[in-house]
Design a protein around this nucleic acid. Structure first.
Length: 820
DNA sequence: GGAGTTCGCATACC
DNA sequence: ACAGGTATGCGAACTCC
C-alpha cells in the first residue's frame, strides 16, 4: 500500500531482541497512523594511523565479540570498513552493527583495550536521533510511504495494544518536496487544586480547550452553572472522564503551561491516591517522567508539550515579560489575560464563587491553547530545521539545539560524530577558569546630542565563520595556511592561536545558518508569513547560540581555545572600530562588545552612511557592520560608587521620540514601581527637553507624595526572585526574610518564585532592611525614609548630577518646607 | 558598637 | 548541568579599632 504520511512522534521498542522504531503521525486524510520501521543499530571504531592497513583483521576480530548481560547475549552482527573523517581528519573506520542499540555501549567498552583502536564513537547518540539521521525520516515532513498493513499477530499483537486504527510496516519513504503544511490537533488542559503541593491536595477541576471543544470537568456541586461544566460523582470519576475525553478527541498534541512540573505529576499522584491508572498513553500506559532536575512527562503515542518549557528555554529572549507566568506571557503574545479569582475563598465557596472558579479554570486552558497556536510556527520551524521530534524540540536548551543541528548534518561531511563529554570531562572543563570576554568602553557622564550607533551583525558567529574557529580546525602550531588570532592573555599567558584555512564543518554549517537566516528574513519581508518569520528566527537563534556552544562544558564540540579566540577577535574588531570612528572625526561615547555609539560632530547622516559602506568593504569574511540608528540625544551617568561613567547604562531618544533605555533601574524588575516610573519619566523629560528643569519638578512631586503617605502600597512592592531553597542562602537578604515569613504563614514558597514585599516602619527591631520587611497583605505604614533614601533618590541622583543638581538638597528642601 | 570594606546575590547588557 | 563573559548596586556580614 501507499499513502501520504507525516511523522509527529517517535518512539522505539524491542521485538525478539531487535530494535524497531514506532512513528506516530497522520495521513493526508487526517487519520491517525502508526508506522513501524526497522533500524540497524551501529557505532564506529576509528583505527590508529599506524594500524590502518590492519582494518580487515580488526574488523574480523570485532565481529566475534559477544557480551553477556542481564541474561541476554549481544552480538556484533556485521562490520564494514569505511574511509571516513573525524574532526576533519581522514581516518580508517569500522562500522560495527550490533543486535540492540542499548548494547552498543557495552560492546564498545568490551573492545576498548584493543591496541589498534584509537576511538569508539556514536554509541552515545540517542536511538531516535540516530534513526532520523540514518533513515532520513524527519519530523513534520510529508512522505509518500510504501508498506504493508500489519496483521493481528505482528510484533506481538501491537495492533491490539495501541489505540489506533491504521498500522503500517514501512518499506520505503520518499519525501514530498512540495507539501509542507501541517496543522496539528491540539488540546490544552489545566487543573485547579486545593493545595499547591503535589500529592497533598485534591484536584477540584480539569479544563480542556481545543478546536470545537471547551469543557470543565469537576466533582464539585454547583447548581445553575455554565453549560460547559461536566459534573462527576467524585475525583476518581472526573479523572477517568478526562482520560476518556483525551482519547476521544485524538489530539496530536496535549499541551499545558508548566504541566511537566505541576499538572501532569499532580494528576499522577492523585491517581495513585484513588488507585487508578493515568492511562493517557495510546498503549494504555501512564506518563513517564524523565530523571534529572527538570522532569519531563512523556505520554506514549501523543506529544505532551509544556509550553512554559519551550518559552523559558528558547523563546523568552524575544519577550518583554518580566516573569514567564501564563498571565504575563499570554498578555504579551495574544493580548488576553487570566481571569481573576481569589484563592482565599476556597474554604467557603458560594455558588457564584464556583461559577467564577470554573470560568477561571477554562480561561487558563484557553490561553494555553491560543499560545500553542501562536507558537506553533516557531516550534514547527525548529523541529524542521533541527530535525528532532517535537517533544525534544520543546524541552531542549539552545546548546542541544546547536548540537543536534550539527549531528543531523555531519553526514554531508562524511564525519563521524564526536563523543559526548563524560562526567570527568565535564568536571575538568568546569575547573578551567574563565577566559577574557568582550570589551566595554567606559563613557564619560553627560548629555550628548546628535548620536549614531553602529553594531556588528551576529558578530561572534561571523567571526567564527570568517576565521574558521572550531575544535576541528584548531592547530597546535602555525600552519602554512592558517588564520592567526590577535595576541591575547589566555590562562595568564600571552598567546596566539592558529586555525586552519581549510574550511571545517562547524564554520561551514554556521555560514549556511547565517545565509539561510538572511534568505528567510528577506523572504519574510516580501511575504509576511508566520512560517517564514519563524524560520528566520530559528536560524538567528542557532547562529547566536553557536559561540556559547563552543565554550559550553557539556558540548561534544567544546573548544575553549576557539571560544577564547572568538572573543580575542571580538575585542580586536571592537577597539579597531572605536579607533576608526575617532580617526574619522567622530566623538565616540560608548561601546559594548559589538557596538559603537558616537556623536556626529557636525557630520551628516549621509556622510556617516557612506563611511559605513567603506568600512564594510574593508571587513574580512562575512563580517558586517550595521547602522543601528540615529539618536537626537543620549544620557550617560556616573556609577553610584565613583565619579567615573557607568557601563551598560544609558538612555537614548530618536527623532520620533522613541526611548531606548538600557541598564537603568527602570528596566530592572527588582525595583519598586514608583522608582521605576519616576526614573523613566525623569529620563524621558530630560531627553525630550534637553534640560533637567521639568524633571526636577517631577521628582519634587514624588518626594511630596511619599512624605504625605499618598503613595499606593502597590507601587512600593519590591519583587525579587528566590533563586534557591531558603536554607541554602549564606546571606539573608530582604527577599529571603520575606520568603521565610511566607513559609510561617503557610503561603507556598518555592525556588524560582518572585517574592513580593515592602519596607515598613518597625520601631527598634534590628537595623537590617530585612527587619522591616512586610508581606503585601500585612498591615504596616511604609517606611518613608527607606523609600526616599534607598529607592527614589538613588534612582535619579546620578541623572541630576550630570546637570550639577543635588537631589538630596531638593528633597531635604521639601522636608524643610514641610517642617515650616 | 560604629565606620569602612568585602562578599553574596539578583539582575542587567551584549 | 543544560550558551558565554562583563557590569552595577543593594544589603548582609565581616573587619577593625
Amino acid at each position: 500500500m501507499r499513502l501520504e504520511f507525516i511523522p509527529v512522534d517517535y518512539d522505539y521498542f524491542d521485538f525478539e531482541g531487535k530494535n524497531f522504531i514506532r512513528l506516530i503521525g497522520r495521513t493526508s486524510k487526517g487519520e491517525r497512523i502508526c508506522v513501524i520501521d526497522s533500524y540497524e543499530p551501529d557505532f564506529w571504531v576509528i583505527l590508529k594511523k599506524e594500524y590502518e592497513d590492519k582494518a580487515p583483521f580488526v574488523a574480523q576480530h570485532i565481529q566475534k565479540v559477544e557480551v553477556k548481560k542481564a541474561g541476554r547475549t549481544t552480538r556484533v552482527l556485521k562490520t564494514e570498513v569505511h574511509d571516513k573523517k573525524f574532526l576533519g581528519r581522514k581516518v580508517k573506520a569500522i562500522r560495527v552493527f550490533v543486535t540492540n542499540h542499548k548494547d552498543a555501549h557495552d560492546i564498545a567498552s568490551e573492545i576498548g583495550d584493543m591496541k589498534e583502536i584509537e576511538f569508539r564513537r556514536e554509541y552515545d547518540i540517542p536511538i531516535i536521533t540516530k534513526y532520523i539521521k540514518e533513515k532520513k525520516v524527519e519530523p513534520l515532513k510529508w512522505y509518500t510511504l510504501e508498506g504493508s498493513l500489519l496483521g493481528e499477530k505482528d510484533f506481538g499483537g501491537i495492533v491490539n495494544s495501541l489505540d489506533m486504527k491504521i498500522f503500517v510496516r514501512a518499506e520505503n519513504f520518499s519525501e514530498m518536496k512540495t507539501k509542507n503544511e501541517f496543522k496539528p490537533k491540539i488540546l490544552a488542559f489545566d487543573i485547579e487544586t486545593d493545595d499547591t503541593e503535589i500529592g497533598k491536595g485534591d484536584i477540584l477541576m480539569i479544563s480542556v480547550f481545543g478546536s470545537g471543544i471547551k469543557k470543565v470537568l469537576t466533582w464539585k456541586k454547583c447548581t445553575e452553572c455554565q453549560n460547559y461544566v461536566d459534573f462527576f460523582r467524585n475525583e476518581k470519576e472526573m479523572i477517568e472522564g478526562f482520560i476518556k475525553l483525551v482519547k476521544e478527541y485524538e489530539p496530536d498534541i496535549l499541551t499545558g503551561y508548566f504541566s511537566d512540573g505541576f499538572d501532569l505529576p499532580y494528576l499522577k499522584q492523585v491517581c495513585v491516591k484513588n488507585k487508578i491508572r493515568l492511562s493517557l498513553g495510546l498503549d494504555g500506559t501512564e506518563p513517564v517522567f524523565s530523571k534529572g532536575i527538570i522532569r519531563s512527562g512523556k505520554i506514549s503515542g501523543l506529544v505532551h508539550l509544556d509550553l512554559f518549557r519551550f518559552i523559558s528555554a528558547v523563546y523568552s529572549q524575544y519577550l518583554q515579560s518580566e516573569t514567564l507566568s501564563l498571565n504575563e506571557v499570554a498578555g504579551e503574545l495574544i493580548g488576553e489575560n487570566k481571569k481573576n479569582f481569589s484563592f482565599e475563598k476556597l474554604s467557603s465557596m458560594s455558588a457564584t464563587d464556583w461559577k467564577d472558579f470554573f470560568e477561571y479554570n477554562l480561561q487558563d486552558s484557553k490561553l494555553t491553547y491560543l499560545l500553542a497556536e501562536k507558537l506553533w510556527a516557531d516550534i514547527f520551524a525548529m523541529s524542521h530545521i533541527i530535525k528532532e521530534p517535537l517533544f525534544d524540540i520543546t524541552r531542549d536548551r539552545m546548546s542541544s539545539h546547536v548540537e543536534n543541528y550539527i549531528l543531523h548534518n555531519l553526514e554531508r561531511f562524511n564525519e563521524i560524530a564526536e563523543k559526548r563529554p563524560v562526567y570527568e570531562d565535564i568536571h575538568k572543563r568546569k575547573a578551567l577558569g574563565k577566559y577574557e570576554g568582550a570589551y566595554v568602553l567606559q563613557p564619560v557622564p553627560g548629555l550628548y546630542e546628535d548620536m549614531c550607533v553602529f553594531d556588528f551583525t551576529s558578530m561572534h558567529a561571523s567571526i567564527i565563520v570568517s576565521f574558521n574557529l572550531s575544535k576541528s580546525t584548531f592547530l597546535e602550531r602555525e600552519g602554512k595556511e592558517s588564520y592567526k588570532t590577535p595576541e591575547f592573555l589566555f590562562d595568564g599567558k600571552k598567546s596566539v592561536f592558529y586555525f586552519s584555512k581549510e574550511k571545517g564543518f562547524f564554520s561551514e554549517l554556521l555560514e549556511e545558518i547565517v545565509e539561510l537566516r538572511k534568505k528567510y528574513k528577506k523572504e519574510y519581508i516580501k511575504d509576511r508569513s508566520n512560517l517564514l518569520k519563524a524560520r528566520s528566527n530559528a536560524y538567528k537563534l542557532l547562529a547566536n547560540a553557536s559561540y556559547g556552544y563552543l565554550g559550553f562544558f557539556g558540548a561534544r564540540y567544546y573548544c575553549r581555545e576557539a571560544a577564547a579566540s572568538t572573543l580575542a577577535f571580538v575585542r580586536d574588531f571592537s577597539k579597531k572600530s572605536i579607533q576608526r570612528m575617532k580617526d574619522e572625526g567622530y566623538n565616540v561615547i560608548f561601546s559594548d562588545t559589538d557596538s559603537v555609539g558616537f556623536q556626529l560632530n557636525g557630520k551628516t547622516k549621509k556622510h556617516t552612511k557612506e563611511l559605513l559602506k567603506r568600512i564594510n568593504s574593508e571587513l574580512p569574511g562575512i563580517m558586517e557592520l550595521d547602522l543601528e540608528g540615529f539618536y537626537d540625544r543620549g544620557l550617560f551617568v556616573a556609577k553610584r560608587t565613583a565619579k567615573e561613567g557607568a557601563k551598560k547604562k544609558y538612555a537614548l531618544i530618536d527623532e520620533k521620540g522613541n526611548l531606548k533605555i538600557r541598564g537603568f533601574e527602570t528596566v530592572r524588575r527588582d525595583w519598586c514601581r514608583l522608582t521605576r516610573n519616576l526614573q523613566n519619566d525623569v529620563l524621558k523629560s530630560i531627553l525630550k527637553k534637553g534640560s533637567e528643569k521639568e524633571a526636577s519638578k517631577i521628582f519634587k512631586e514624588v518626594v511630596e507624595k511619599i512624605k504625605k503617605r499618598e503613595v499606593d502600597l502597590k507601587d512600593l512592592m519590591i519583587r525579587t526572585q528566590l533563586r534557591r531553597p531558603i536554607g541554602e542562602y549564606v546571606s539573608e537578604g530582604p527577599h529571603v526574610i520575606a520568603a521565610k515569613k511566607m513559609k510561617e504563614k503557610e503561603i507556598p514558597v518555592s525556588e524560582g518564585m518572585l517574592i513580593e514585599y515592602f519596607i515598613g516602619e518597625n520601631k527598634g527591631r534590628g537595623k537590617r532592611v530585612g527587619d522591616k520587611v512586610f508581606l503585601p497583605d500585612e498591615k504596616a505604614d511604609y517606611d518613608i525614609d527607606y523609600y526616599l533614601n534607598n529607592q527614589i533618590i538613588p534612582s535619579v541622583e546620578n541623572i541630576f548630577e550630570v546637570f550639577g543638581v543635588d537631589v538630596k538638597e531638593i528633597s531635604q528642601g521639601e522636608s524643610q518646607k514641610k517642617l515650616f
